[in-house]
């Protein structure tokens, strides 16, 4: 079962782990190649990512823009800090809602796990203002749809 695990370290760090059936090289590339990113990093149904810029080298910029097609949308900018193919990505990112949230340093590692990959994502827990901003602006747009999907999954299971 490839379910996602989410834990915290101390008061400020969120750790997400997830297994994938594909080898580390494929999972790593799916995080850096725009034509792949645009197929999965979409959030709830109905959202697309028309703009995906990903200059995958230390100091390189990234910019993701999401839209729901009815004028709603938000974007994320960031910079790469370190890249170790096909095992580790470190980047800084901030969401624009439209005011930027504080910079968040995110480390993503990809470890071989049998035939597949164990991915671990470490990020900083946003402060209260940033969480409120996300709940009130960008993320909540998808909550209803996400909830519906949860229900579908529950029914299907």
């Amino acid at each position: 079962m490839n379910s996602l695990k989410l834990t915290t370290e101390g008061d400020r760090t969120v750790v997400v782990t997830r297994r994938f059936a594909a080898p580390p090289e494929q999972v790593y590339r799916a995080h850096l190649e725009p034509d792949l990113i645009q197929q999965w990093m979409l959030g709830p149904p109905g959202w697309t990512m028309p703009v995906c810029q990903c200059d995958a080298r230390p100091g390189g910029a990234l910019r993701y823009e999401w839209t729901k097609g009815d004028g709603q949308g938000f974007y994320l900018t960031g910079e790469f800090v370190a890249l170790e193919p096909f095992s580790r990505i470190v980047h800084i990112e901030r969401m624009h809602l439209p005011d930027p949230t504080p910079d968040n340093r995110i480390e993503t590692t990809f470890q071989p796990d049998g035939e597949g990959t164990l991915m671990t994502v470490r990020m900083e827990l946003p402060d209260e203002e940033a969480r409120k901003g996300m709940l009130a602006s960008g993320m909540e747009e998808g909550l209803e749809a996400s909830y519906q999907r949860l229900e579908e999954v529950a029914k299907g299971g």
Binding site: N2, S3, L4, L6, T8, V14, V16, R18, F20, A21, A22, Q26, V27, A30, L36, Q39, W40, M41, L42, G43, P44, L125, P126, R131, M134, L135, M139, G142, L143, S146, Y147, R149, L150
Partner: peptide
């Protein structure tokens, strides 16, 4: 907040499973 994050990430990674397969 973590519950919201977990749901958003789960949706993304389920989609990535499909893409990788």
């Amino acid at each position: 907040w973590l519950a919201v994050l977990k749901t958003a990430l789960s949706a993304n990674y389920d989609r990535l499973d499909t893409l990788l397969a």
